[in-house]
Each structure stands twice: as C-alpha cells, then as structure tokens.
Design a protein around this nucleic acid. Structure first.
Lengths: 233, 233, 233, 233
DNA sequence: CATGAATGAGCTTTCATTCAT
DNA sequence: CATGAATGAAAGCTCATTCAT
C-alpha cells in the first residue's frame, strides 16, 4: 500500500497454520472487512465522489475514523476496493476449471462465465467505470494490480491453441481480441442497460432479452473463431 | 427543475432569416451555450457529483447564478447536457449519408463511424457512464429523449434488408443485435481504456492497437452477417 | 493576494472621490472587515492552529463560508491579518510627527511610542510570535509586505544624523541597532510577561514595574547614543 | 493531569551506585525520554495546538497510549517539556563558573552565554513563546517551576556588587534590569528573526549580522553599567 | 508494560442553492 | 440580465483520549 494505514498482520488467517488468532485481532479483522464490504456497495452505487465516507462507515456500523485507521484515506480505501473486486473475479474464474481439451465447450463456458459474472456482479461493472472516469489513477497506486492481470486471456489462448490443433478454430485470431470481444459484449450490455433501456424503449434487463443477447454473443464468438470462412467485403 | 428554466426561443439563429434576435438575446444565448459547453467538459471529466457548479461557471467565465437562471438546477443542466450529446451524435450520423444500395460498404462505413465517433468524443462515453451510474434517472426527465432513439438501428435494418435481398447477408440476424455488437465493441474499448491499459500492460490507446481492434471488429461484424456458415458447437 | 479570493473593488472608499458606494457594497465591506477584526482577536488569542475558522466566523457574526469567500482560505485570512496589523502600526507611527530638529526629544518620544504601542496592542506581539513560529511563511506570501518595512529605522536614522550634527549623539551607531534595541526591550517585556511573571515571582504587568522598565530602557538608549564615553572593558 | 502520570523513580541512574534499575525499567525510562525529546522538537516546531500527540509518538517511535501512560495528558507532557528546557538552561548556566572577582569579564561572559544559548537552542525560544501565548497557564501547574527561577539574576547581582566595590560599575542599576536587557536583546533577535528578515530585507541569521548584533549588545550593556556618565536629555 | 482498536468531537474546506440589488 | 453576497449542510480528515487485551 502506498498510504500509511496500519495494516493488521493477520490479514487472512492461513487455514493450515497453527496461528491462534486472538479474539481481538478477529474483531479488528471484522471491522476492517465490514468497512471494505460497505465501501464496495457504496462506491458501486454512488461512484467515488458520491460515495461519502460517512455513508460507508454508517453502512459498516463503524466510524469514519476507522476508515482512516485501516485504509489511510478515502483513496486508499478505494484502491483496496478495486483490488478486492479483481481478486474476487479472478477467484471465480479459477474455480471454473475448464477442460481445454474440449475447446468448443470450454469457449462456450467461458462466454457464459463472463456474461453471467458481469450480470451477477453489477458492482464490478460500476466500479470499473468509476475507475475509468478517474483515468485509472487509483489502480496504478496498487502494488498488487499486476497480479490481477486477467488470466482469462491465457485460458483463451490455451483454448484457441487446442482448437487449432483439433482443426476446430482459426489460427490467425489473437486471444486478446477474443477476450475483449467477450468482455465488451458482456460489459456494455450491463454497463449501459439504463440508457439502452431508455433509448431502445425495451427492457434490456428482462430475462428474454438477456437470453437473446447471450445467444447472439455466443454465435458471434463462434463465427469469429470458425476456421471455415473468410468474410467477403 | 427543468420547468423553471429560461429557454431562449431562438435556439439557433438561421443566418438567412429575418434577424429578430437583438444584441441582448444574442449575448444571453452565448452565455447559455458557453455554460452548456463548459458543463459537458466538466461533467465528462469529473462525473456528476465531482462536477461542481462552481467549476462549470468558472470555466464558462460566468456565474453560478446563471446556471440556475438558464437551467434551473444542476440536475436540469445535466439533463440538457445529455440531450446535447445525443443530438450531436445523431447529427453526425445523419451527415454520414450511407448508400444502402451497397450494403457491405454501408455496413463497413457504419462500423467505422461508430468506432471513430466514440474515439473522437470521449466525453460522450464518459457522460453515458455517469448517467448509467445514476440508473438513467436524468434522461427519463428529458422530454426530448425519445426523439433521439438511435436512428442507427433503423439504418442497420435497411442495410441488412438490402444485404439479404442481394444475397449478401443472413436473414436471421436482428438489427438491434448488430447495432449493439458494434456499439459494445467500440464503447468498451474507449470506456475501459484506462483499466485495460493497466491490466493488459499494453497501451490500448496507441494507433496500432486501435487499428488492430478496428480490423478485428470489422471482421467480426462481417462474419456475423455472413450468410455462408453456421458455426458448429 | 496569492489566493483566488474575490476581492471587492471598493476596499477603502477614498474620502475625496465622488464614488457613491452602494448600500450593498457597504454591507459587504462590513462583513469583510468584521471577519478581519475577529480574526485579529482570535489568532492573537489562540495562535494560528488554535484559532479556528469557526471561532472567527462566530465572533464576526458571520459564516465560515464567508471567510473563504473573502479570503480564500484560513491562510489567506492570516496573511491579511498580518498586513493589517503592520499597516496599523505604521499608521500610528506616521501620526507621531516627530520633530527631528530636537533629536533628544524625538528619540525619547520614539522610545515611548514603541513601548506604549506594544503595550497597548498585545495582539501585535502575539501575532508576530505566531508568524515567527511558522518561520514567516505567511508574510512572504504577502505582496504588500515590502511596503511595510519599518519606517521607524529611517526616522531613527534622521534623528541620529541631527543628533550628530548638533554634537549630541555618537556618529558610529547604526539606526538599525538602535531600532532593534528599542524594539527588543519593548517586545520582550510584553511577549514574555507571563513566563517572566512566573519565574521572577513579580507581577511584571503592574504599572510601577512597567514604569521602572521604561525608565531603564530610556536610560539605556540614551547611554548608547551618548557621544561622551567609550566603555572600558 | 500531572498527578496521574507514572514517574519512574530512577530519573538518572548514577553510574557508580548500586544498580537496582532492571532492564525493564531501563527500557521504560528510554521510552519516556524518547517521548520527551520528541515532544520538545514537535512542540517547538508546531506550537502546542499544532503539535499533535500522534506526531510526537510517531517521532518517538512509540504509541499515543504511552504519552498518556507516562505524562497523563498532552498538557502534562507539555508541562514537563517546559520543566526540561528550563532545567537544561540552568544546567548550562551552572557550568559557566564565572569568576565574579573579575566583574567586567564575568559580565561579558554572561552576555555571550545568554546570546549563544538562545542561538544554539531555538526550541527554548519557541517553546517560551508558545507558553506565553497560553498566558503561562502550563508553567503554573508545574510544582518545580519555582526551582528554576533564573539564577542568572543572582549571578548578575554578584557581578554588579563586585563591580561597584571595584569602582567599575554603577551602584544604581538593578540586576533584574540588566538581566532583562541581556535576555531581551538576545531573545528578540532569535525569536523574531523570520519577520525581521522579511521586513529588514536582510538576513538576520547570517554570521556577520549576528556578530554585529552581539558587539552592539555588549557595548550597550557596558554603557549601562558604566559609572562615568549620566546621559543628558 | 506494550500494543492497537475504538470513539466522538472538531477541524478546514466545498457544496448546491437563494437572496438582493 | 448580470453580479455578487449570503447561507447552511455536508464533505474528507485529524484531534485528544479511552478501552481492552
């Protein structure tokens, strides 16, 4: 961390260790985490400026002062919020356990995962938008930012490689682009659902609409990796 | 509120017409517009909460008071900001004058237009994100919102229809989805460029990266409308 | 001023001018001045850190906000406080109208003036101490600081010159040193009166004590400028 | 309050005596003293209000809590700070060992000592100013305050007495006044060096300026005690 | 004794907005 | 219409101090 916030050592009690976490450390840990959880909600709902320290501490049933005690500043708290949501996303991704040996299935599952994840975690989308509004100036302050570099791209790379070997996929498509395509379609649909709803005059959030979009995205992704055709212009 | 705001009638003095617009109204018009211009910049840069009334009036070289005079409230000003950027976007689109008779070319031009427009108008992207953060509660207050419903979908519908007739495009693809695909890929790339840059470790903004992405998107769109194949799963 | 505070033009209505100062400007002027007056008192009593914005605005029967409106910041206000007390001191000095032609008398009056002024204006002493605690970082921000460079030294220079010509004073004593001697003896006695009282076990503030000190200082100053002797060592 | 503070008995372990001071008490002693040292620095630099408990404990590499353990309160700590700097000053004075039998030399050495001491210990000056800002309300809480009543006055009294006996000094000058004269000239020059530098446009701190001032003060003091003349008015 | 978590009041400053010419 | 003074709430943050091991 960049800030001078006190960082309790026992950040995450290793399950295997003998470490006897005192009741005091435990409750401190609870305070810290409830603030973090509250901050995720509040920042996601109101943005960075709109998410006031008081709103957060109140939701966490703690005190403003504690935010400065544990995170040094509002900014330090926001940095940790970003780290946390990336961590969570990566954890979820890691649990997917795709079978790269079946590249078409794996790719389908990846698309499902990404679209479902954004849908189930609107705060992820909102917080990323907020961070982009601030030109990414918080995330660059995080020392752990690099650790979170999307492993999804690597996985997609593996899938493509297997797909090519099995003659099921194009060799000339980059994992980065496929990843961005999936992310973009999933992200945009969530991120802009309110303005889209207003302008399309259609409730974009309704399950049928979502299902249609998902089918379309899946179809699109498969057409992109399909080795058979080269589209005429 | 919007209702109490003064709205000069002569919104855009036609140069050829009878000039009933006095010198006084003209300068009033100027004040109003310079506030609007400033507001677009400030809200785009700092979001709604972060964009303070004072920042706007100072950039416009006017006074806080004038914002209330012309727009009723900060919220009213923001509503008009949204209307304005949609208006501008639609105006630009209208100037495109696509030849639907050449559907493949028209589609290509449409993709170029959307991606280029987002790129040239980052404030459009930022302001839409801000509005979505607020769950679209400002745009629903706009009486003119409906007028701006994207004509692009209609145009894409025309293109697809012509493409089908000429045997160049699939019949079973919806204009809405094609539009969303183009918008999503263009929007996401701009909107998330800061976090993408941080996490991909690659400058997403650099012209070669942008060019690659554009090629990929074009390829994707053409594969989607391509009638030849149906991707296997 | 360094800060961006709005500075009403009519800072001090020239008595001779035709300027019709509106009732509005007048009351604004009053607000500004009552804040300044309150600030002098509060800063003198509690120092810079101890003198809170709220204490000042309350004493001025105004609002915190007004301090920022007129002075930009607490620091800006303090700068103006310093300017004001120097201005007042110089104004008082200017009213002295010493007759340099009678150098011994003039010197005596100068000593009286300085000692009396410090005594009558303890806030001057306290505020200077506060500024010195901050290593003079506020006064260097004042553009008018230079204007206030003590005219007393010039006057003392004139007195000494006349004294030398009349054979009443030494030629080899610098006005600066004489000024510093007078200032030091007057200042220290006021500035440190509380600790002196505690440690000397004597009420330094009582009129007899003050009178004794004044006689002593006068005697000292005259001995210093006396041309007759050169003290042996 | 002072009363509730723990005061380790062994204030300064005599090296030759029986060492009953355990390792534990020793480290406690160290903590206490490092806090005191830090407090002197911090209070001298930022004043009483500006010198926060946290700044002190951080500089002392200890904890806020320890300040309350050893000194009862911020106020109690400040009282002890004042006691300490007086103690130090008196200790230094005691080491002077003037030869009163040579009154002129002794007086000269006394002037040198005072001026040099203030110069070498700016924190002494600053802390006294701070205490005077608070009208001496801390020092009166000190039980040991009286012990520190300046022995310098007594010494000057002895010097004057010897000087009179040897026909070298006036009989009608009070030790108190001579002491105050020396203290005032030395103190003022240090205390106000920042504002003086700003207003005189001359670096008061530079060695030549200091040397000139010292010469002048010495000259002044000698003229004051000189029995030869009585200045005309 | 040391450590660190908790507490609530207070700090300077900025906010959106209204009043008065 | 333009200008600028006034207003009170709320913002982020720091303060001295106490509680609990």
């Amino acid at each position: 961390m960049v800030t001078t916030a006190r960082q309790p050592k026992a950040r995450m009690a290793k399950p295997g260790g003998k470490r006897t976490t005192g009741v005091r450390e435990q409750s401190a840990q609870q305070t810290r985490e409830s603030i973090l959880r509250a901050a995720i909600k509040v920042f996601a709902q109101h943005g960075y400026e709109g998410g006031s320290v008081e709103k957060i501490s109140r939701l966490a049933k703690s005190y403003d002062r504690m935010i400065y005690y544990y995170f040094g500043s509002k900014e330090g708290l926001f940095v940790e919020v970003l780290e946390t949501i990336y961590q969570r996303m990566n954890d979820a991704e890691a649990e997917l356990a795709l079978d790269v040996g079946q590249p078409l299935l794996a790719l389908e599952q990846m698309v499902h995962f990404v679209l479902d994840y954004y849908r189930a975690h609107p705060e992820f989308v909102t917080l990323l938008n907020t961070e982009n509004l601030h030109k990414g100036r918080h995330i660059v302050k995080s020392l752990r930012a690099k650790e979170y570099s999307s492993p999804a791209i690597t996985v997609i790379g593996d899938i493509l490689q297997a797909g090519v070997q099995q003659g099921l996929m194009r060799a000339d498509v980059s994992p980065r682009d496929v990843y961005l395509l999936i992310a973009a379609t999933g992200y945009f649909y969530m991120s802009n659902r309110h303005t889209l709803t207003a302008f399309l005059g259609e409730n974009i959030d309704a399950p049928p609409a979502v299902a249609q979009w998902k089918r379309f995205v899946l179809d699109t992704v498969f057409r992109v990796v399909n080795p058979a055709v080269q589209p005429a212009l």
